[in-house]
Amino acid sequence: MLFNVYPLYDIEPVKAQGSYLWDTKGDRYLDLYGGHAVISVGHTHPHYVAALTDQLSKISFYSNSVKVSMQEELATKLGALSGYTDYALFLCNSGAEANENALKLASFHNGRTKVVSFKKSFHGRTAGAVAVTDNPAIVAPINYNEHVTFLPYNDVEAAQNGITDETCAVIVEGIQGVGGINVASDEFLQALRRRCDETGAILILDSVQCGYGRSGQFFSHQFSGIDPDLITMAKGMGNGFPIGGVLISPKFKATYGMLGTTFGGNHLACRAAIAVLDIMKEESLIDNAAKVGEHLMKGIEQIGGYKELRGRGLMIGIEYDFPVETLRNSLLFDHHIFTGVAGKHTLRLLPSLALRIEEADVFLEALSKEVKVVS
């Protein structure tokens, strides 16, 4: 018997290709949610499938006690595509684990314990990650931590006052995903960078959901022109194969045993992540995310009926003044389109970066019909 597994819908995808899923009945669905922003280059991309199949026929796993040359290849390609060529890479298995290790690195570096996070943040479900998450639905009493302060998001004055010489780290999402697709302003991120420099605090950019090209830049904070001390990532990094990582600025010095992982950086995970980067580069998927995202935003604006439209690239939140559950259900069951939500009032779109204009138009036509019904 499974514990705490309650599928929202009695639909089981059994086949997938590109931006589409097929269920057990053979019905096709347009996937605009990508399994929580995980599917970055599209379902079952031929290059991705071939790479993992080939790797499975050779070796799928051995421990980090031996050399895994693909880890170095992955780090080099990630640095080149993201622009962070002088940053080191620590590989792990998930976004929560990446954030845990980033917080640990920060505390190792300056010896401090106090952390600043932000309202409506989501950083994961493990002990340290959930302690810096502002979501009472998942934060158990044991997870509350007197060392963590939550400040208002996008409030420069609050950040100036709340980040002090006692602050170990500031952890922030470039675009809040679960919190409602709230986009950090350039002014806000620049203020965080300045204040961390002034106080010696470590700036951690959680790019687990808003990274890997989704925003139209490799990392969404790159719109602001800042360089964080630590950048965490996962989700789209493996296109469905579990992998996470931390990009680490040169100010950090590694020592043996400081960080560790059993499964992180295994052969299959690295091969998946390398395939993702190769596809992103070859097919210009970051540019495509920007182009198709702009098309979607303009189309949604023309449809209207919303309270607020937020996002960048293919990370879009449409907030309505009514609960969106009915709208989401109508899109799913009447039009066979998967979308997500963020809270009760925001429809959340996180499709593959390979989404095509004509696929976006299928959604826009369906949304136009359904908004008129439910509004």
Rank of each mutant, 00 (worst) to 15 (best):
Q17I: 15
L21I: 10
G26W: 14
L30C: 15
L32Q: 13
Y33S: 07
G34L: 04
G34A: 11
H36I: 14
I39M: 03
T44C: 14
T44Y: 14
L52W: 03
S57P: 04
S63K: 02
S69H: 03
M70E: 00
E73S: 02
T76V: 13
S82L: 10
S82F: 11
D86P: 08
D86H: 11
D86C: 07
C92L: 03
K104E: 09
K119F: 08
H123F: 14
R125T: 15
G128D: 07
D134S: 12
D134P: 08
I138G: 08
V139W: 03
N145F: 10
H147M: 15
H147L: 15
T149Q: 13
E157S: 07
A159Y: 10
Q160P: 04
T164P: 05
D165Y: 09
E166K: 05
V170I: 05
G174N: 11
I175E: 09
G177A: 13
G180L: 06
I181Q: 08
A184M: 07
E187Y: 03
L192E: 00
R195M: 02
I204N: 04
G213R: 02
R214T: 01
S215G: 08
Q217R: 12
S220H: 02
P228S: 06
D229K: 08
D229M: 09
G238C: 12
F241E: 01
I248V: 03
A254F: 08
G260F: 09
G265V: 00
V276A: 07
L277G: 09
D278G: 03
I279K: 03
S284W: 05
A289N: 06
G293S: 03
H295S: 07
L296A: 06
K298P: 05
G299M: 13
G305R: 08
L309T: 07
L314F: 02
L314P: 01
G317S: 11
S330Y: 09
L331S: 04
F338V: 12
G340W: 02
L347F: 08
L350W: 02
E359I: 13
A360C: 10
L364P: 01
A366D: 03
